[in-house]
Simulated assay, not measured.
Amino acid sequence: MPIELLFPSRCPGCGAWGARPCESCLASFGPPVRVPGAGPPVFALAAYGGAARELVLAFKERGRRELAAVFGALVAAAVPRLPGVGPGAWLVPAPSRASAARARGGSHVLRMARASGFSAAPALAFARGVRDSVRLDTASRQANLAGRVRLVPGRLPPPGAPVVLLDDVVTTGSTARACVSVLKAAGIGVPAVLTLTTARRTHSYG
């Protein structure tokens, strides 16, 4: 008996039977929209709530690795629409803490980047001492990352290639700022940051 008959597929966004994910939940994501705030230009495809949040969590924390292809397709459609990003763009995934990446079976952001069809360069990593930032405020997040984002030798994009920093959710923007700062210090231009979702309450889609 096919396993699908024993365990029918369900949408990780809303729990509906027979689709993974359903069209209604996918409609939560739109074209890249600028996230308000200082720092590098950050663009998001959805607000971090409802179905979009559930899909991201299913991919990130609940083992739904097949969503890499779904999110990769969204990224593939969004990158050419980012200002200042020309052909031949490379994606640099935002790093995860080593323990979190091990628990997820590897970097989920790198998995999504590779599924997009763009060249991906896992050029960044966190040094030891970075804490889980979920309950940290802006100042604490900045202090948490200060001096703890490092380049990974041998994994940089080629010189002169346009680079997009890729992440799954932006909250305060501290991670984006720290990563872009390290890349720019190495002579790597980052015209845009792309994230699936934003948790900033000032951000909306319509």
Results as ranks from 00 to 15, higher is better:
41 P>W: 00
91 L>K: 07
107 S>Y: 00
107 S>E: 00
72 G>Q: 07
68 A>C: 08
104 R>C: 04
92 V>E: 11
104 R>W: 06
21 P>T: 04
25 C>Y: 11
13 G>M: 09
36 P>I: 05
39 G>I: 01
40 P>W: 06
19 A>W: 04
17 W>V: 02
96 S>R: 12
26 L>H: 03
26 L>C: 03
40 P>H: 06
67 L>S: 10
80 P>S: 07
38 A>Q: 12
40 P>A: 04
103 A>G: 08
77 A>K: 12
28 S>G: 12
112 M>T: 14
102 R>G: 00
41 P>H: 02
103 A>V: 01
22 C>D: 08
81 R>P: 08
76 A>G: 10
18 G>M: 08
80 P>A: 01
119 S>N: 06
26 L>Y: 03
106 G>Y: 06
84 G>H: 00
23 E>D: 14
101 A>K: 13
58 A>N: 12
35 V>W: 10
21 P>R: 00
25 C>H: 06
75 V>I: 10
93 P>C: 11
42 V>W: 01
26 L>I: 08
119 S>Y: 01
66 E>G: 15
56 V>R: 03
106 G>H: 04
21 P>I: 09
60 K>Y: 09
113 A>V: 02
103 A>E: 12
37 G>D: 01
16 A>V: 09
93 P>A: 11
109 V>A: 15
115 A>Y: 01
84 G>M: 00
74 L>T: 11
34 R>I: 05
13 G>E: 14
75 V>S: 08
18 G>D: 13
98 A>D: 10
103 A>N: 03
75 V>K: 03
96 S>G: 15
43 F>N: 02
13 G>H: 10
19 A>F: 08
10 R>V: 12
89 A>D: 12
86 G>F: 13
86 G>I: 10
8 P>I: 00
35 V>F: 14
35 V>K: 04
103 A>D: 04
34 R>Q: 08
28 S>K: 02
101 A>M: 07
14 C>K: 14
16 A>Y: 03
80 P>G: 05
109 V>R: 06
66 E>I: 04
28 S>E: 15
97 R>Y: 08
33 V>E: 09
85 V>R: 05
55 L>M: 13
75 V>A: 04
